[in-house]
Amino acid sequence: MNNIQYRALALLLSSACLGAIAAPGQGGMPPPGPMTGAHGPHQRAPGVLHGADLTDAQEDKVFAIMHAQEPKRRAYTRTLHDSQEALRALGSAEQFDDAKAASLAQAAGTALAALTLLDARTGAQVRAVLTPEQRKQSLENRPRREQRRPGRQAD
């Protein structure tokens, strides 16, 4: 890759990462840590659970899955945020360091990819907890979720 390609890659990755994830506490993504929502700290569960009535045992399993993945999620989120902050600072610095920017963009991209993969794995683990009827129920609720979230893909 030549210098122009590195700059284009760095710009593309930083723009995509900045657009996809807001800085913690600034209009979208809360600071790393326990998430709370309408139903408490377990609200980060994959959308596959919407509309599926879980037994207590299933809720415990889902909680364990979500709890087990949280340390990795926090680490990846921190790496992503720190890389983005450093890229922003580098972009407004007196002198632009191309190699450092490329390294930071790579770190941000790697962290974002790791978060995406973690979400996919977590979703698969949660789906495995559901009965076939609950999976069907979740699929039936998917079109309704898509209508509420125009322009976004369902889980």
Rank of each mutant, 00 (worst) to 15 (best):
L54Y: 07
R74D: 10
L11N: 14
F96I: 07
Q137D: 08
Q84R: 12
P30M: 03
Y6W: 12
P132T: 04
L130V: 07
R121Q: 15
E133C: 08
L18S: 09
A20S: 08
L9A: 07
L12S: 14
C17L: 01
L54T: 07
R144E: 15
R144F: 11
A93H: 12
D53I: 09
G51I: 00
R145W: 03
L54E: 13
S138C: 06
P46K: 07
T79I: 08
M1R: 01
Y76W: 10
A52P: 03
M1K: 01
Q153A: 10
R149V: 03
A108Q: 00
M66Q: 15
P41F: 00
L112I: 03
S103W: 00
T36G: 06
A64W: 13
P71V: 02
S83D: 00
A20L: 13
Y76A: 04
A105T: 00
K100D: 02
A10Q: 01
G123K: 04
R135L: 14
M66K: 05
R144Q: 13
R142E: 14
R127W: 06
H39F: 13
R145Y: 11
T122D: 11
A113N: 12
A113V: 07
Q137L: 02
R78D: 05
I21K: 00
L13G: 03
A8P: 00
Q95R: 13
G40P: 04
R148S: 14
Q147N: 11
L118C: 08
A86E: 15
Q69L: 08
F63I: 11
R149H: 14
Q69I: 13
Q58L: 12
A128C: 04
H81Q: 11
S14K: 01
R145V: 09
L9K: 05
Q69A: 13
L130E: 09
H42Y: 06
Q26D: 06
T131D: 10
E146R: 08
D60E: 15
Q5R: 01
L139T: 09
P132E: 08
E59A: 06
V129A: 06
Y6C: 03
Y6I: 00
I65V: 13
G40R: 04
A75C: 04
R127F: 06
L54R: 07
G37T: 10
N3E: 01
